[in-house]
């Protein structure tokens, strides 16, 4: 399970009330989470930037509706996934351009072993590209983000068996592709 900065309720309350510093703290705690999910689903660096902006502006505009029935993290995952899926439907860009952005982005991040990271990224993205959006989202949330089945069900607002079924079908697809690759 990945960990990241958690924001407590008083800070959320203050951001809801208009405290810019509290909102900035929320952004910095969750920006990488939102950006990474957006990047894995949309597969386009520029789209991930736009999705991240849209998610936090949506959060700002709809903060008054946030009632603590779900955690802020779950709420952000939900907006990020839905925004990324919509962005992906809106326009799919050419593969070569995607890869250029991905590699540039990894080099910009200053990874300890950029070449290995580019390779790992390319391999994972090639696998994700095999999957239809619903299965891809479940794989991203479970295997990359480390959410439990219950958390994924809350983010996607589906039942546990649907989560399980999407993961299973996605992995069967990956397995079949790997078997074909090995022949």
């Amino acid at each position: 399970m990945r960990t990241h900065g958690e924001i407590d309720q008083p800070v959320i309350e203050r951001a809801k009330a208009g405290d810019a510093r509290a909102f900035a703290a929320i952004y910095h705690a969750y920006a990488a989470l939102v950006f990474s999910v957006a990047l894995r689903i949309s597969r386009v660096w520029q789209d991930a930037e736009e999705i991240t902006q849209e998610v936090f502006i949506t959060l700002f505009r709809k903060f008054a509706q946030f009632n603590f029935l779900s955690s802020l993290k779950t709420w952000l995952y939900r907006i990020a996934v839905n925004t990324a899926l919509n962005a992906r439907r809106d326009h799919l860009r050419e593969e070569a351009r995607r890869l250029v952005y991905q590699k540039t982005a990894i080099l910009r991040q200053g990874a300890p072993d950029p070449a290995a990271q580019v390779q790992a990224d390319a391999e994972a993205n090639a696998l994700l590209d095999l999957l239809p959006p619903e299965q891809r989202v479940c794989i991203v949330l479970r295997t990359i983000e480390g959410l439990s089945y219950q958390e994924i069900a809350e983010v996607l607002q589906v039942n546990l068996n649907t989560v399980r079924s999407r993961l299973k079908r996605g992995r069967e697809t990956l397995l079949a592709w790997k078997q074909g690759e090995g022949k």
């Binding site: 952004y27 991930a48 930037e49 991040q109 990271q117 790992a120 391999e123 696998l127 295997t143």
Partner: peptide, 21 residues
């Protein structure tokens, strides 16, 4: 089915994203 994805790093957005927001 798991290891290829676990090698991925979480990626931070560039500072320009916060500036735009």
């Amino acid at each position: 089915l798991v290891e290829p994805f676990q090698r991925l790093e979480r990626v931070s957005p560039p500072p320009a994203v916060w500036e735009q927001i």
